[in-house]
Amino acid sequence: MSEVAIHHPGSEAFEPSLFGTYSKKIGMWLFLLSDTLTFGALLFAYSYGRISNPDWPTPFHKESIANATLMTGCLLSSSLTMVLAVLAAKRRDRSWTRNWLLVTMLFGTAFILLHGMEWSKLIEEGMTPFKNPWAASVPQFGGTFYTLTGMHMLHVTIGVIYLGVVALRKKFLPILFLLWLLGWLAIPASSVFHVGIHVLLLALIVAAIVLFLKPKDYDAHDVEVSGLYWHFVDLVWMFIFPLVYLMSTRI
């Protein structure tokens, strides 16, 4: 059995790609396309529940909108720093690529923390996936809220870890381990995040397998592809923020 011929996409032996780009980027675009449908289905479920329940509550007041606006600000800023990271990667400026990626991750982490605190407060107020204190006949309010924002939070978390792997490679693994351990010990056992933090452990295992199987340097293309994912996650929030928060505001 012979070694497989090395194939560079776009090399002479192959037809030019239909979109003039490389496989990984196409792959990411396609993943995002399918993810759009996944989020689309959840947003459809939300709209359906909302339209069919005339007593839909509008409990969000000034503080929670301020909080959500701050979260939005975090994500918007992170998109900007992500663009700067991609530009730095294209200049082959390794240190600034890493720095901007780290700043992006920082904004993402801030988003997750703000979001987690908001969740905790809502749970304290008695809002769960199956009931809420404002409208007993509309359990869908909590259900759709936690499903949509939870799914999005999961995406942001995966995004932060993804960027961490691209920015720091194996050096990111101990950081991720510490984050998991810290989170697990610091979060009280009564909180949902006590269980939820294990997403980090799972991601740690996956990241370790990926990094040890394929110990490569991540080039500008990898940064660009991770950027596509990150911008998509931001974009999804731009739908969730008005639909879930602003439309449920008591003015």
Binding site: L33, S34, D35, T36, L37, T38, F39, G40, A41, L42, A45, G49, T128, P129, F130, P139, Q140, G142, G143, T144, T147, M151
Partner: peptide
């Protein structure tokens, strides 16, 4: 385009069964 939607639907169905939501 299709399987992503079923994935969401399946998650919601699991939540209805196990988390008490009423989708």
């Amino acid at each position: 385009l299709a399987f992503g939607v079923l994935l969401s639907a399946g998650i919601l169905l699991l939540m209805d069964r196990n988390l008490g939501t009423s989708f």
